[in-house]
């Protein structure tokens, strides 16, 4: 199966009908309907109903995720009760701090899958690490359920937890981003970077996306359709990279056919990491074409 790309995961407030209606048109790999921070307490119940109906009614051309409220708040369990019936692709748990939370949500999802006749394991999960405490257990959280497909870092809360402020180059998040990435990689799931909230500062945003791509992140949470375009452009390989990757794969396939152990391209030896990297480049290129 082709690997699902999650370059741009776009948040949409779950209580805004016009935004829900148009959420799918901007090319985000994942839309995340937010029931948490974007929705006032007085609107929580309306938002979860709206999101439920949007998913049932509209055929979104991308992965559909829902950020629920934490299950220890008075809203999280009700969120799950309402929205799981619509069969979202992915549930995003905020402020994850322990594997037990993941297991608890996993069980609730399993019950819902059974109740509504969905295939077992068809609804995925991801968790956002937003505290130092959560980061210490990032690997355990990432591996707490086979449903887990991604870890994200929730930067604003994390920075508050660190007792600092956000700088333009994001140096204060450097260690946290790296640790989160290591945990995700060790668990074999995606690593997603935090949002950048000044949508008019494109320059800093572009620098940040380039930086997290270089760190190894699979994608970024975004809050505006205009950011989707930028993230996808940066994550799309150049023609030169694509051409090289195609040649690596061709040489690799030819070597396999020949039963040759040594693969050579332009006098350089090709090893497994190079092939994996080439496959990754081509997967991104293919997705960008669509």
């Amino acid at each position: 199966m082709e690997k699902k790309l999650r370059r741009a995961m776009m948040f949409m407030p779950g209580n805004n009908p016009a935004m829900l209606q148009n959420a799918g048109i901007y090319g985000a790999d994942t839309v995340i309907f937010d029931l948490e921070d974007a929705v006032a307490i007085s609107e929580k119940d309306a938002a979860r109903q709206l999101v439920h109906n949007a998913i049932k009614t509209i055929n979104y051309p991308c992965e559909v995720a829902i950020r629920i409220n934490h299950i220890l708040t008075p809203y999280g369990l009700d969120d799950l009760k309402v929205v799981l019936a619509a069969k979202p692709d992915l549930i995003r748990l905020p402020k994850a701090e322990s594997p037990d939370e993941i297991k608890q949500v996993d069980e609730i999802i399993s019950e819902a899958e059974q109740k509504y006749g969905f295939a077992a394991g068809s609804i995925n999960m991801m968790a956002a690490i937003e505290t130092a405490k959560g980061l210490r257990l990032a690997y355990e959280i990432a591996t707490a359920s086979p449903r887990m497909v991604a870890l994200a870092i929730g930067g604003e809360d994390f920075i508050a937890d660190l007792k600092t402020t956000r700088s333009k180059d994001g140096k204060e998040l450097y260690v946290a981003r790296s640790q989160l990435l290591l945990a995700a990689r060790a668990a074999g799931i995606d690593a997603i970077d935090t949002v950048y909230s000044d949508i008019n500062d494109e320059e800093t945003f572009i620098a940040e996306v380039n930086m997290i791509k270089q760190l190894g992140f699979d994608g970024k949470s975004v809050i505006n359709p205009r950011q989707v375009r930028i993230v996808k452009e940066i994550f799309t390989p150049s023609e030169k990279e694509i051409a090289h990757a195609e040649r690596v794969i061709t040489a690799y396939k030819a070597a396999i056919e020949r039963n040759s152990g040594v693969i050579n391209l332009d006098g350089k030896m090709i090893d497994t990491p190079m092939v994996l990297r080439a496959e990754r480049v081509l997967a991104y290129a293919k997705s960008a074409k669509r």
């Binding site: 148009n22 048109i25 901007y26 505006n224 359709p225 205009r226 375009r229």
Partner: peptide
């Protein structure tokens, strides 16, 4: 315009 929908149409 900064309206993402108008920008998408323009694109």
């Amino acid at each position: 315009s900064k309206d993402p929908r108008e920008l998408l149409i323009a694109e």
